[in-house]
Design a protein around this nucleic acid. Structure first.
Lengths: 182, 182
DNA sequence: GGACACATGTAATCGGTTACATGATTAC
DNA sequence: GTAATCATGTAACCGATTACATGTGTCC
């Protein structure tokens, strides 16, 4: 999923400045499955404007610096819809936690405990964020994906809580075997 | 999670050639949360060998070309354990499907149907792969992460099946609104 | 003799992040 | 006057992928 499509998707929902796009992608509705940096947002926005897919106008705000608000154009919306039509690529998923968990027997109970407890907290926070998003937005498709997220992340958290101790119990087993062999 | 740590993790479980590491990372136990390409495996393996974290030897096989099998060294294992000790970064997750689903009202029922049915099939296949992995390997920590995966992906698939039709029903709503406005 | 799986490697390229640079405005 | 948030933008860099290049051995 490239930055261009992501920005088009965000602007399709509502007008936004580069700064606001960044916020959406790291705190808002999109944060659950997307994240973009300023370093790619601003150049992409310029390119998008040059291609006529979005247009920007300066807006002055009281108590804040001016911002440049972008809107998607008809051409931009067409482009976005065309992108949606091609079958979505499989999810990209990378997890350091799973690597650590899979190597639990190599590390200490402390390391595993910290790792899983950190994950539990992160999961709880993500669920809170998604829950907050649901309340704010009554758009049906958004409700659908937030229900989906809540369902999956709820199951995830439940497993983590139920099986926390059994993972911690595995810590250090490989080390002990090594010592026994010496 | 960088390529170096990933390769160390794989070699910590068993010796492997570059080709086999690629297979592990895209078909084997690690495929669930990792994927690396040849273009980064081979150079990293050379670097790792130069640093004394792994060592390779040529092995001739009957009916197949020779392969260079790598093993992790004590130094490599220490390095890997040290990496595990730092708190794991939050999962990286990017989903084109969620973007499409969130924009369901912009597209046709056909596009949404294809997207969700593709996802259901992929999910079923992933569950099959993880199930297969469980049978092959009785390492406790691996059992733990595969149970975890099965639990979460099972919940995921259940949601997809239960809510497939409601998502499809949302398709085209935005288009109809546009037409009504004209 | 060609298709296919196995096997290794490099160079060009790319998409994106990090760090940097700058500045408005408010609140303390 | 300085810290914090809002706001925009660029340049250097990096990690990884893609495509390319090459070769072995098997099966039909």
């Amino acid at each position: 999923m490239n930055t261009q499509t992501l920005i088009l998707a965000i602007l399709n929902f509502q007008d936004a400045s580069g700064y606001e796009i960044k916020k959406q992608s790291s705190e808002g509705v999109f944060s659950y499955f997307v994240d973009i940096s300023y370093g790619s947002i601003y150049p992409t926005l310029s390119k998008l404007e040059a291609d006529g897919l979005v247009f920007g106008r300066s807006e002055s705000q009281s108590g804040k610096p001016d911002k440049k608000v972008f809107s998607i154009t008809t051409k931009g919306r067409q482009e976005f819809i065309a992108t949606l039509a091609s079958p979505p690529a499989i999810d990209k998923f990378k997890s350091e936690f799973l690597l650590v968990a899979m190597s639990a027997d190599l590390t200490s109970p402390e390391v595993i405990t910290k790792a899983i407890d950190k994950r539990i907290i992160e999961m709880e926070e993500l669920i809170k964020v998604i829950t907050g998003l649901r309340v704010e937005c009554d758009h049906p498709a958004t409700q659908w994906i937030t229900s989906y997220g809540l369902h999956v992340k709820g199951a995830d958290l439940a497993f983590l809580r139920s099986n926390r101790d059994s993972l911690i119990a595995m810590a250090g087993k490989a080390i002990k075997l090594d010592e026994a062999a010496e």
